[in-house]
Amino acid sequence: MRLTTRTNLAIRTLMFCAVNPHLTVRKSDIAAACNASENHLAQVVRTLGQHNFIDATRGRHGGLQLMRSPSEINIGAVFRVFEADLPFAECFSPANTCPLVDACWLRNAIHDAVEALYASLDKVRLSDLVEGNDGLTALLRFHAPPGCTRPGRDLPAGQGVASVEEAAARSPGRPA
């Protein structure tokens, strides 16, 4: 089985947002960190927003944040959003032309394998992918360019942060 680029980018986007919980991140930040096209990422972001995984705000001060805690985001559900409409094999497509479809037992085996994959992914939460994963955090932690600051969104009023490092310091259990 091979995942689509869209599913791969969706998971990368969610991980980037989870690693940077007190920041509103931008598509360009994610694209740079994940070696992705911003145009392709825009399609993924739109779908993630439509399915309430992220809050995407447009405009100059816009960006992305998770709509739910990472522990509430089921990876199997994300995969289904991006993969469910794509038939795994021709025999699962409404446009199927395979003459063996009525007698082929491989179709049942493939169906069972795909369902087993989703059942396995249903056990995984976004938090399982990011919490305690120092290597991933080091790769995806947002670092503002020199002289540039971005305030955190979920901090109490009047407690904006001067830097990303301060936001990380305020996030328990997260290294700066």
Rank of each mutant, 00 (worst) to 15 (best):
R2Q: 12
L3W: 15
T4M: 07
T4R: 02
R6P: 06
I11L: 09
I11F: 11
L14P: 03
M15L: 07
F16P: 00
H22G: 13
V25G: 04
K27M: 13
I30Y: 09
A32Y: 02
A32Q: 10
C34K: 05
S37T: 11
Q43G: 15
V44S: 00
V45M: 04
R46I: 00
R46G: 13
T47G: 01
L48S: 08
H51A: 03
N52I: 01
N52Q: 08
R58S: 12
R58P: 10
G59R: 10
R60I: 03
L64R: 05
Q65M: 09
R68I: 13
R68S: 13
S71P: 01
I73K: 05
I75N: 05
G76D: 01
V78L: 05
R80I: 10
V81W: 00
F82H: 15
P87W: 04
P87E: 08
F88K: 05
A89I: 15
E90S: 06
F92H: 02
T97R: 12
C98I: 04
P99K: 07
L100Y: 15
C104D: 10
C104A: 09
C104G: 06
W105P: 08
W105N: 14
A109N: 15
I110L: 03
I110S: 04
H111D: 13
H111W: 14
V114C: 06
V114K: 09
A116W: 06
A119V: 00
S120K: 11
L121Y: 11
R125H: 08
D128M: 00
D128Y: 10
L129T: 08
V130D: 04
E131W: 06
E131L: 05
G132E: 05
L140P: 02
R141T: 14
F142A: 03
H143A: 12
P146M: 06
G147K: 10
G147L: 03
G147T: 10
C148W: 08
C148E: 09
C148F: 14
R150D: 12
R150M: 10
P151K: 13
G152W: 05
G152P: 03
P156S: 07
P156I: 08
P156C: 09
P156Q: 07
A157L: 05
G158Y: 05
G160H: 09
V161I: 01
A162Q: 10
S163Q: 01
E165S: 12
A167S: 05
A169W: 04
A169T: 03
R170Y: 00
G173D: 06
A176Q: 13
